[in-house]
Amino acid sequence: MAGNNPDQGSMIGVVDYGSGNLLSVTNALAMVGADAQLCSTPEQLAGAERIILPGVGAFGNCLDNLRCRGFDQALDELVIRQRRPILGICVGMQLMARKSLEGGEHAGLGWLDAEVVRLVPQPEQLRVPQIGWNDIEFRANCPLFAGLRQGTDVYFVHSYGMNCRDETDVGAWCDYGGRVTAAVWRDNIVGTQFHPEKSQDIGLRILENFVRWTPC
């Protein structure tokens, strides 16, 4: 990864709060030519032009880890007040919701009017977690999917899904025994339930789209 200067304009800060496989995220960003840096403190993150919020595991754990490092306040400042572009991945997307019902009720960052609830696919033979490649439909102008065709397959692994109150926050969806939110988009905020860093060429293209995106 090139460049260690936090003042550099194009740095993409990957929030490192002890969650999951960050190496794949930074490797994938490097592959599309982005200057990605792991940021383990809010001070490091402050220099990021745009932000990636990954997340693996339980919602409550992720949120606790985010808070105890002071990232919740830092993210509010950078994302809500300064309107820097952010991409949440998997639980990183779910954290943006108002609340989650995973393992009790937890308040989220509250950026989107949404609730995170356990997948209840119909018929019941469908397994939880949803693991594997599923095709998505996306809103035509959603910046993450520029240049991709409708119905493209991306890689999911999750037991909980995000239900948006405001339908216009949904950037993409898939069918898993019912409609499941695959991506969200509102202003400078985007998120994917699936893992772009695990979705081969298509996923790299989605990351590249995020890196090039200028929210209006």
Binding site: L23, N27, A28, M31, H195, S199, G203
Partner: peptide, 11 residues
């Protein structure tokens, strides 16, 4: 794994 993860973007 680390070497694989550098260039392989699937689970």
């Amino acid at each position: 794994v680390e070497r694989a993860a550098e260039e392989i973007f699937m689970p």
